[in-house]
């Protein structure tokens, strides 16, 4: 039996969670929300995490009903992510690991998402679409690694949505993507936008510049913000579903798992579901509790590593902004 605590703070979400052999004992989170029209910056985000981390830690411990003695391993996000917020949270993880005299493990954020998705949905060996504010990757498991088959060649899909929300001054509470999704439900007219797929890779920067340039004149021409949100979602999600389908055909698999913050978008899930059904496959998706960055995913992935015998020397307990999904050898997977 392994009980593990996970610290996550690679972007504007601060999360701490405790998990015991796949059973979630607590999952606490705070989000740093900026005013409409603004994104979150490293310095302020790190300050937010610093101000809240002890309260969240206490809440996570209380909710789980455990004491520090019950914890077997302390896990934290090593990367990828924003430097300052990552470092802030890593310091706390290192400190508690030393206070409690427990082993410490740095976890790849993307691997956390994938392992969490597999745990919650029970998907055995899915092709993974990982979509968030900072990442857009199509991943499949082969030869002891999560291999990246497709990814964005410029900005992430969530970044494209977030920045479009800034153009329209859509509130960032609870998240810009959620608010775009709600507006899109009321959109009626479809505006044709640039569509950019390159093999299994996608590109969003052209669509974003197009929107940034044209939004004002489009609004004057009678297009509503709802129509624009609708058209943007339809276009970029179609690109994601198409490239995922390409990866499925290339690998000969039929299961898809969606994870990452954008993954809780119901329209994306619906489109992906339709594609899977057409191929006789299945879609696995989770809701906002596990899609959006959280501490449990770090705790769970860390526990898997810990059980497989992974240990991290103290000298390596740093953070890194660049940490590719395929850099990690998945020693805990035996298939």
């Amino acid at each position: 039996m392994v009980t593990s605590i996970g610290f996550e703070g690679s972007a504007n979400k601060l999360g701490i969670g405790i998990v015991r052999d796949g059973e979630i004992l607590s999952n606490c989170r705070r989000t740093y929300i900026t005013p409409p029209g603004e994104g979150f910056l490293p310095k302020e985000t790190a300050q937010h995490h610093k101000d809240n981390v002890l309260a969240v830690l206490k809440e996570a411990m209380d909710q789980s009903g455990l004491t520090w003695k019950d914890i077997d391993v302390v896990c934290y996000t090593k990367g990828p992510g924003m430097g300052a917020p990552l470092a802030t949270v890593a310091i706390v993880a290192r400190t508690v690991a030393q206070l409690w005299n427990k082993p410490l493990l740095g976890v790849n954020h993307c691997i956390g998402h994938i392992e969490m998705g597999r745990l919650i949905t029970g998907a055995k060996n899915p092709t993974v679409l990982y979509v968030s504010g900072g990442n857009t990757q199509i991943i499949a498991y082969a030869r002891k690694r999560y291999r990246i088959f497709g990814e964005t060649i410029d900005i992430a899909v969530g970044n494209c949505l977030d920045r479009f929300a800034r153009v329209l001054k859509i509130p960032n509470d609870p998240s810009p993507g959620y608010n775009i999704e709600q507006l899109a439900k009321k959109g009626k007219r479809f505006l044709q936008l640039p569509y950019c797929v390159k093999g299994m890779d996608v590109s969003f920067s052209g669509i974003l510049s197009y929107m940034e340039e044209k939004t004002d004149s489009l609004l004057e021409d009678g297009w509503t913000p709802e129509d624009l949100c609708f058209s943007l979602q339809e276009t970029i999600f179609a690109m994601l579903v198409e490239t995922t389908e390409r990866a499925l055909a290339h690998c000969g698999s039929s299961e898809v798992l969606i994870c990452g913050g954008v993954g809780c978008n119901e329209r994306l899930q619906q489109m992906m579901g339709a594609m899977c059904a057409e191929r006789g496959g299945a879609l696995f998706a989770t809701d906002e509790r596990f899609c959006i960055d959280n501490g449990v995913m770090i705790a769970h992935a860390g526990a898997e590593m810990f059980k497989a015998g992974v240990a991290m020397p103290w000298q390596e307990a740093g953070v890194t902004q660049r940490y590719r999904t395929d850099e990690v050898e998945t020693v805990w997977r035996t298939d």
Binding site: A11, P80, G81, M82, I153, D154, N159, R322
Partner: peptide, 13 residues
């Protein structure tokens, strides 16, 4: 150049 651009994407998560 394209390669360098692609790798950069692992920066923010």
């Amino acid at each position: 150049e394209v390669r360098a651009r692609g790798r950069k994407r692992t920066m923010v998560g």
